[in-house]
Amino acid sequence: MNGQNRKDVLPGKTVDIVLKADQRTGKLTRGIVKDLLTKSSTHPHGIKVRLTDGQVGRVQKVHAE
């Protein structure tokens, strides 16, 4: 799943995000969602989340459990 729909991104899910500093390169960071920061139901660049380690970025991929 891509990370554009808020209903697909839930706390505790494993996701790949792109950090603000990595937007030019597209480097992905894997982690577990702690908080959802985007309030709208969809976002074209991905839902913004905070991972359990404190990193913030936009979800590019949601991994199936």
Rank of each mutant, 00 (worst) to 15 (best):
N2D: 02
N2P: 01
N2T: 02
G3P: 00
G3Q: 01
N5H: 09
N5G: 04
N5S: 13
R6L: 07
R6C: 00
K7I: 09
K7V: 07
D8K: 09
V9H: 09
V9S: 05
L10Y: 13
P11E: 02
G12H: 10
G12R: 09
T14A: 08
V15I: 13
V15A: 03
V15L: 08
V15K: 03
V15T: 04
D16R: 11
I17T: 13
I17C: 10
V18R: 06
V18K: 03
V18Y: 03
K20C: 01
A21M: 09
D22Y: 05
Q23R: 12
Q23W: 02
Q23H: 03
Q23E: 13
R24P: 04
R24G: 14
T25W: 00
T25K: 05
K27E: 11
L28R: 15
L28P: 01
T29M: 13
T29P: 08
T29R: 15
T29C: 13
G31K: 10
I32Q: 14
I32R: 12
V33G: 01
K34T: 02
D35L: 11
D35V: 09
D35H: 14
L36H: 06
L36W: 07
L37K: 08
L37E: 11
K39L: 13
S40Y: 10
S40V: 15
S41P: 01
T42R: 14
T42S: 14
H43K: 03
H43C: 04
H43D: 11
H43R: 06
P44I: 06
H45W: 04
G46R: 05
I47G: 03
I47L: 07
K48C: 03
V49K: 01
R50Q: 13
R50E: 14
L51G: 06
L51E: 01
L51Q: 07
D53L: 03
G54C: 06
G54N: 04
Q55D: 14
V56L: 12
V56D: 09
R58Q: 02
R58E: 03
V59Y: 05
V59S: 01
Q60G: 12
Q60E: 13
Q60L: 09
H63Q: 11
A64T: 15
E65T: 11
